[in-house]
Design a protein around this nucleic acid. Structure first.
Lengths: 213, 213
DNA sequence: CAATGAATGCAACGATCGTTGTAAATCAAT
DNA sequence: ATTGATTTACAACGATCGTTGCATTCATTG
């Protein structure tokens, strides 16, 4: 019989397993992470994991990856809406947006640890999983971001022939170095360093993308 | 067994082991990579590996990481010297330099696959190894690159208060997206895409860093 | 209370792995 | 050809792992 009606405790166990798996997969990577350590992290018996996930370790990993991406995307879409929809002062809004952009690094450390593992496991994962993750996660966010930069260009706030390129350049000037230097958030950076990286990145961006004349 | 083509000397065995280990560590990651598979890749018995590396798997990994970094640094320093020492046409030299910068991605795929693994293993590696790698590799290159950008600023070719930041912004505008989108070179990008990314990156950079007026 | 279904503890399996010991085979140099 | 170093094949060890079956416990519901 299917899973028509679940008791209260049932879904919670599943949730705990997924949360624990995300933490352990992110910390240890797919191969090093053992079902036993995941079970301990989730405070669950190993047997229960197999009761919930027929596919075992690999299915658990797939679930963790896809469900995690949605969480991040939601946060990022909200961020775009909050800082880039109604722009009053472009520079300060961009600075605020850039700060918000790297916030998930600290807010969802487990997920980004997992992303690091994903990049390393690229050769050992089913391509459809990679594709599903990219589409539900990074690409989805980026598409919305590019649209918003197109909006900024249409409003005459920036000068950009190619809005996608403009969005890409902004992210790389303001976010990439923070991401890289902190190992995707694994080693947090001093606030002062982050502030400087973002401030100088936004300045460089505006020098390049502010309308001329 | 079969392959009695030519007998290798002592140092050559060691070389073969390191080369094989680099390939397998890069492809499979530290945990998944087995001594057996490394031995097969290097066409050597597993016992020979232990004869050469007392520290076993972990020492082998350490050697592969540090010796690989030096190779890349040499290529990058040569590149800086070739394209940024005597600049005739800034834009075309920057474009050529950017192309050269990502060249090692395809020329030393094993090493960059290893770098991907390094980033994922950050939590399980001895900090002194990470530090040694950063210092012998990326940081060393970047320091020279920053000096060269300081030179460009001193010559009046670009306008940059902070040469380090200027170098960083250049790399991120021209190289980072190629690196990211190709998974550190694991999935090669179409030449046309690379050309466009670099061209638009250099243009954006020059818009921001060309002297005003 | 009894019934039901989920969660657990436990043992066991086959597989893989890192590592070592040992003795035979192979090489380089005399 | 003898020597001495190096490489090899082979076996074995302890350990860990993914996974499953089974009997037991536990909480909820009728």
């Amino acid at each position: 019989m299917g899973t028509a009606v679940k008791r209260a405790g049932l879904a919670e166990k599943r949730e705990a397993i997924v949360r624990g798996a995300r933490a352990v997969f992110g910390r240890d990577g797919y191969t090093r992470a053992s079902i036993g350590s995941i079970a301990k992290e989730a405070d669950v018996s190993t047997r229960t994991i197999y009761n919930h996930f027929d596919g075992g370790k690999s299915e658990l990993f797939r679930v963790v990856v896809t469900e995690g991406a949605e969480q991040i995307v939601a946060a990022q879409l909200d961020l775009i809406d909050r800082y880039l929809r109604k722009v009053t002062d472009l520079e300060s809004d961009l600075v605020a947006f850039a700060h918000g952009w790297i916030e998930p690094l600290e807010k969802f450390p487990d997920h980004f640890a997992l992303v690091r593992q994903l990049n390393a496991e690229v050769g050992h994962l089913p391509p459809e999983l990679l594709e599903a993750w990219q589409e539900a996660g990074p690409r989805k966010t980026f598409r919305v971001l590019a649209e918003r930069f197109a909006g900024l260009a249409a409003e005459g706030l920036i000068e950009a022939d190619d809005p996608e390129r403009a969005a890409l350049h902004f992210i790389h000037l303001t976010g990439t170095e923070v991401t890289a230097r902190s190992y995707h958030g694994a080693v947090p950076l001093p606030r002062k360093t982050v502030d400087e990286l973002i401030a100088s990145g936004v300045r460089a961006y505006l020098r390049g993308y502010l309308p001329r004349g």
